[in-house]
Simulated scan of single mutants.
Amino acid sequence: MTDPDDKAKLDALSARIDAIKDDHAPKTRTPDHHSQAQLAWRMVIELVAGLGIGFGMGYGLDALFGTSPWLMIVFIFLGLAAGIKTMMRSAEEVQSRQAAELAEDETHPQG
Rank of each mutant, 00 (worst) to 15 (best):
S90G: 09
M43C: 03
A99G: 01
D62H: 02
D105Q: 07
R42A: 14
D23V: 02
L47C: 00
A81N: 06
M88L: 14
P26D: 07
Q98D: 13
G52W: 04
D6N: 07
P69Q: 00
S14P: 00
D22A: 15
W41C: 09
L13E: 15
Q110G: 12
R97F: 12
F75G: 02
P26N: 03
D3A: 01
E92D: 12
R29S: 07
G58C: 09
L80G: 02
D22T: 09
M72D: 07
K9N: 08
Q98G: 07
E104K: 06
T2Q: 12
A49E: 05
M72I: 13
P109I: 04
S96F: 11
K85L: 07
D6M: 09
S35H: 00
G58M: 00
G50H: 05
L39D: 06
D22E: 08
L64I: 08
F65L: 12
I84N: 00
G60S: 13
G58N: 00
E101H: 11
T107C: 11
L64T: 12
R42E: 12
Y59N: 08
I20C: 04
E106R: 15
D32S: 11
A81S: 01
Y59D: 10
L64M: 15
G66Q: 01
R89I: 03
L61G: 03
V74E: 02
